[in-house]
């Protein structure tokens, strides 16, 4: 703003030539960028190899539970610092019904912070991080991974064989990929909690001290 109000003809001409020169240089620079390859890369789905396969093996993606090797010990539920995992157990007589079975094994991925603390205490390696990371949901409720699909059919707890140091496990990611596909399901017309087992609200969430 310190421009003098009066300007000589020479100063006027210098202004014009200076703007012409700066235009010349500036436009040449921007045009040169237009003819260079962009620095940014495409979204991973345009890569030759699916990006999931290019991630490191210890990548912490969505959690996955192989219910066939879950011992229902609830160690992961206790380990979770933000109560993402919810496991409901039912006790049976051990003859007609299994002694311990899981009515519910829910992991709220919408809340999960991918810290990996649940994976560490798992005795059988049933709960694992997969390399899956993409999932768009039509409704917030869809983000909950329900590893027991039907509470009427509880999953019996796994009894690890004595002295075993390795446990059979389905290929990592196979289960969760199926569940993610359901996230595309449209949202219910009115948001509602599932009727049979009302999900605990924030006040109800508590761990039974053992």
């Amino acid at each position: 703003m310190s421009e003098p109000t009066q300007k000589s003809l020479g100063g006027w001409a210098r202004d014009v030539s200076e703007s012409a020169r700066s235009l010349w240089e500036g436009m040449s620079v921007t045009l040169s960028y237009m003819f260079k390859k962009p620095i940014t890369t495409q979204y991973p789905d345009r890569m030759p190899l699916p990006v999931v396969h290019t991630l490191p093996t210890r990548y912490r993606g969505f959690l996955e539970v192989d219910m066939d090797t879950c011992t229902a010990c609830q160690a992961c539920e206790r380990a979770c610092p933000i109560d993402v995992i919810n496991i409901d157990l039912i006790r049976g007589d051990g003859v007609t019904t299994p002694k311990t079975a899981m009515e519910r094994f829910d992991i709220d991925i919408g809340k999960c912070m991918f810290c990996g603390l649940c994976v560490e205490p798992c005795p059988t390696g049933s709960i694992q991080h997969t390399r899956e990371f993409e999932g768009a949901a039509m409704a917030f409720d869809n983000l909950t991974l329900r590893f027991v699909p039907d509470p009427a059919k509880p999953y019996p707890a796994y009894k690890p064989p004595k002295g075993a140091d390795a446990y059979p496990r389905k290929p990592l990611g196979e289960i969760v990929r199926k569940l993610i596909r359901e996230w595309d399901a449209p949202a219910p017309a009115f948001p509602q909690r599932d009727g049979q087992t009302p999900r605990p609200g924030p006040a109800e969430v508590s761990h039974v001290p053992r």
């Binding site: 921007t30 045009l31 960028y33 237009m34 260079k36 962009p38 940014t40």
Partner: peptide, 10 residues
């Protein structure tokens, strides 16, 4: 598109 290319984007 042109703006993106001039800013090294896609």
């Amino acid at each position: 598109r042109i703006a993106a290319r001039m800013q090294s984007r896609v």
